[in-house]
Design a protein around this nucleic acid. Structure first.
Lengths: 129, 129
DNA sequence: GCCTTAGTTTACGTGAACGTAAACGTAAAG
DNA sequence: CTTTACGTTTACGTTCACGTAAACTAAGGC
């Protein structure tokens, strides 16, 4: 079984990012595709990494923060000391993400409020007609 | 009852942003403090706006997106047509925020996975001692 | 009167995350 | 053989969100 691979424009199309951006991520050491001569060859694993990068971006993380997160997945599971450190980092990430979610929930609650005010106003208007 | 006001450095201290940043937000039309001569005077309402700005930033929104959001709160509740538009914009925001939250939940799930793998590995290790 | 503290405007500098243009290689299609 | 599609490196340009420095004003303390 030979694993499927992707060209840079395959990924560019699929995720709607420019090839320039993908190369930039490589330059910043977030992906390391293989080469076939000059050409970059992306494996399924690289594709997942790119997906994670873009999700990180949507979440407002900087590329260097995203790199830190990606590095979590690459931790050498062979050494117990590394595993302990990894658990700590996971906890930290989790806390950050949960704070992030609280911000979102606050904003959603305010949208609810605003919508309610809005609808009440419209209802009054309808009555006064 | 005279409402409490704040100086730029009051807010700067409270929210741990530089005065420069606060003035920058004003320049971009996100806050409009009153003046007392030259000096900027911030009301409780301005303070809330700043709080919203900073939350928007934590959520990864650009200043212009944040301005759009802040403008929602300023909609003229007097005109029905405005209210309908506002309801639409609120819906759009809500959708964006919920997508955002899904991204977070996905990442949290992956952190769970990673943690589980990590703990299993540690457990095996303990058994093999 | 002088110093300190807090604030002001104006303007140039900076780091991150790419965009864009130039100049070139390679391989398949007509 | 030339065109077309796809890829490459190098390098300068751009936008956003401020940082930083300069030169100034205005109020309060000694």
């Amino acid at each position: 079984m030979t694993e499927r691979t992707y060209s840079i424009s395959d990924l560019s199309r699929e995720f709607d990012v420019t090839a320039r951006a993908i190369r930039f991520y490589e330059d910043k050491d977030l992906i390391q595709p293989m080469r076939e001569g000059q050409r970059r060859i992306y494996t399924a694993r690289d594709r997942v990494r790119l997906k994670l990068i873009l999700r990180g971006k949507r979440l407002g993380f900087s590329l260097s923060e995203i790199k830190d997160i990606l590095d979590l997945y690459d931790t050498d599971m062979g050494e117990s000391r590394q595993l302990e450190l990894l658990l700590d980092k996971i906890e930290e990430r989790r806390r950050a993400l949960e704070a992030h979610r609280r911000d979102i929930d606050l904003t959603l609650a305010e949208m609810d409020d605003l919508e309610r005010q809005c609808r009440e106003n419209l209802k009054e208007r309808a009555g006064a007609d």
